[in-house]
Design a binder for these strands. Sequence first.
DNA 1: TGTATTTAATACAGAACTGTATCCTACTCC
DNA 2: GGAGTAGGATACAGTTCTGTATTAAATACA
Lengths: 209, 209
Amino acid sequence: MEPTRRLEPAKRRRSNTRARLLAGALEVFAERGFHGASVEDICERAGFTRGAFYSNFGSKDELVLALFQATTDRLLEQIEALLPDLASQPGTLLDAVLSLLDETAPDQRQWHLISAEFTLHALRDPDAAEALNKQRTMFRESLTRLVEQITETSGTTLTVPAEQFVRMVIAVHEGARSQSLLEPGEVPAGSLEHTFLPMVLEAVSRPSR
Amino acid sequence: MEPTRRLEPAKRRRSNTRARLLAGALEVFAERGFHGASVEDICERAGFTRGAFYSNFGSKDELVLALFQATTDRLLEQIEALLPDLASQPGTLLDAVLSLLDETAPDQRQWHLISAEFTLHALRDPDAAEALNKQRTMFRESLTRLVEQITETSGTTLTVPAEQFVRMVIAVHEGARSQSLLEPGEVPAGSLEHTFLPMVLEAVSRPSR
DNA sequence: TGTATTTAATACAGAACTGTATCCTACTCC
DNA sequence: GGAGTAGGATACAGTTCTGTATTAAATACA
């Protein structure tokens, strides 16, 4: 109907292979790491040959960047979708924050692997660091706004800046997840967060003047 | 004098090149990651050619294992040396624990990179996971004993198992260090730990009956 | 001092990976 | 339905890496 209609099939094909390549890369990076995965590995996983790859990306580095962007975009979208519910609806402050941290990562293990890989990459490459920090900042700001909204509506004040508190929650979450994945039997997912973070929240909470 | 005297020079030469190769590997792994570092890179850094490498190690994997063992041994030795002082001497419980975490890692950045690399490796390889968990367990047990000693002598009881508390401290420490390294300006090293962990300790401390 | 042994350098063969150039196929559009 | 184009496969050249086999040097030992 619309002129775009006629153009779609061709464009859709292209963006579909891009998507499949990105999805394949995600899997292979999680399994073998960034350096351990060859372009060939990625293509094979996606069901293509390297012809398709180099027709869509200039290099593995470029794909990594695209993958990071795609992941970031999806993540921030999800947050935007979840925020209103969490801010208004039922549970406590911590439930809201922790569920946001969890629900944005359907597969904890894969997400952690990819995330750790990116972080390591960023610690070595200033450009990657800037991109990662930009993403983390936006993520953190969303969480901070969430915390501020909930404390306000519940008549509570924090004795530290909300962002500082969010940083602490993130630190605990990441450190605890690492332990849970290394020793699934010893450290059930979420146990450290749910044991100790309420104590922290309690310690920094005061009823509003 | 002793018969060992006569044997030393030859053995010393060999173990010296092993040590230099291990030291070179540590640097190169920190810079480019485990997969990103070639055997050649490591040899070059250590001032050898691959001949020396393959005369001392069967493969890069074998060297990684040896490096992990050497690092672990050194770490546990250091702990043994530090524990008595920390347990008896001056400051608070948290100062003792945190200083143990810090002083065992002279170069925070390099240590974090290597540590993260090993962890990532362990999350993919069950054998590496077992080795890493064994080391982490011993490290954690040392910290737990330290906590137990200090609480006892100070007439305090914890409302959670000491090990659980130690796990929390480790989680915060690792998560916070990651943030500090990514954003040195925004998160000074140790700031999150020193802001929030005292609150946690306070919350789980009770005077002994 | 001379011989044997150990250690590391050098030379080499093979494998894996990358990136490009070319070809084929399936759409698009007239 | 036929020419033109875009997407992806195939083939190839060049590089890098690994691991081994051989050689040279240093050390031990007599």
